[in-house]
């Protein structure tokens, strides 16, 4: 019936080392994830920075780095789409995000899993939706701008 995890796979036409850098170098991560991180990712420590999406620059993004096994596994815990600056998310159980890398003939197979949604409070899920209603138009513009640049 219901499921409490997300799993995605994508094959990237780039070597594992390149993908690893894009995931774990805080500046590179920030480029595609749209967050301006204050410093490097360190296991056991909180990574923090302001979101760089227009309209969301006031929102601080936070994640606690769990594992960094070079070119194999990068993971962190976070509170997905917790964008209310006034809310205290620290009492809520975070979800776990894992990026797994595997070399293939053409590049890298990236497997992303996010698990632990059964612990996300209902109120938070509603909030993500409500905020998203206003956010979609902005996101479309973002993607359009990105595509136009490429």
């Amino acid at each position: 019936m219901a499921n409490d995890r997300i799993e995605k796979q994508i094959e990237l036409k780039a070597p594992v080392a390149r993908v690893w850098r894009a995931l774990t170098d805080y500046r590179e991560f920030g480029e595609w994830f749209r967050v301006k991180l204050e410093g490097p990712f360190v296991p056991g420590q909180t990574a923090r920075g302001n979101i760089t999406w227009p309209g969301y620059e006031h929102v601080v993004w936070e994640a606690v780095v769990q594992k960094m096994e070079p070119e194999r596994l990068f993971s962190f815990t976070w509170h997905p789409y917790s964008v209310d600056p006034k809310a205290d998310y620290s009492k809520e159980t975070p979800t776990l995000v894992e990026f797994r890398l595997e070399a293939t003939a053409n590049g890298t197979l990236l497997t992303l899993t996010e698990s632990g949604f059964d612990k996300v409070p209902a109120a938070r899920r509603e909030e993500a939706f409500l905020r998203n209603d206003g956010g979609w138009a902005q996101q479309m513009e973002n993607i359009e701008a990105h595509v136009a640049k490429a």
């Binding site: 499921n3 409490d4 997300i6 995605k8 994508i10 990237l12 036409k13 780039a14 390149r18 993908v19 894009a22 995931l23 590179e28 480029e31 595609w32 994830f33 749209r34 997905p80 789409y81 990236l110 992303l112 996010e114 949604f117 996300v120 899920r125 993500a128 939706f129 998203n132 996101q139 993607i143 990105h146 490429a150």
Partner: peptide
Amino acid sequence: YLEFVSAKWDEALGRLQAFVE
């Protein structure tokens, strides 16, 4: 909710792909 978060990951991974390729 899972569909929402899932769609967000599709977007993020799409940007990652553009970035590394």
